[in-house]
Amino acid sequence: MHISEGVLSPPVLLVGAAVTVVGTAIGLKKLDYDRIMTVSLLTATFFVASLIHVPIGPGSVHLILGGLLGIVLGWACFPAILVALFLQALFFQFGGIVVLGANTTVMALPALLCFYIFRPWCMQGGKKRQIAAFGAGFFAILLSSLLMALAISVSDQGFLQVARLVVVAHIPVMIIEGIITMFTVSFLAKVQPEFLQIGSR
């Protein structure tokens, strides 16, 4: 899901950087002392998740876990994803420093949206929580793929062509991430419900 350097045009890069700066500022402002460890743990999870390659489907894709970060962290997913992507660019040469803003926006904005859509359901418990968690994992990837296709198409090729390529490649990841998010959230809700509530303010 990381866009390489030299693919996007300068206006797209600037918009991505601006959204990232605003999101990160709000995320850091909302971040209080008790949540720092939660955020850093999920940052570490996100950082290693992209090393897990999903060998299904036509493309070459990996886990992202944007939905999990979004539903647990809310606005704090922006600084978390920014830091993780920066380190991935530095250590793994995934993406790049110039496209950092655009990549952060592509992954964090859908995560934040999932927080607002699925968070209320997630608080209710039972079946609804499971469905909400699956939805967060699934739709975060779907929306990220569409956002990425939009970013590329504005700079380069037609939207439909890129969207088809990216979305189809990510269908297996959507389902897998939905299931992973569902199990993680219901597991945490059972054993450590405070962990989920922390992000709810």
Binding site: S4, S50, L51, H53, P55, S60
Partner: peptide, 14 residues
């Protein structure tokens, strides 16, 4: 997650 990557390939750039 960290250990499960060992058996899987990495894919993220071309």
């Amino acid at each position: 997650l960290f250990f499960s990557f060992v058996n899987s390939g990495f894919a993220h750039k071309v």
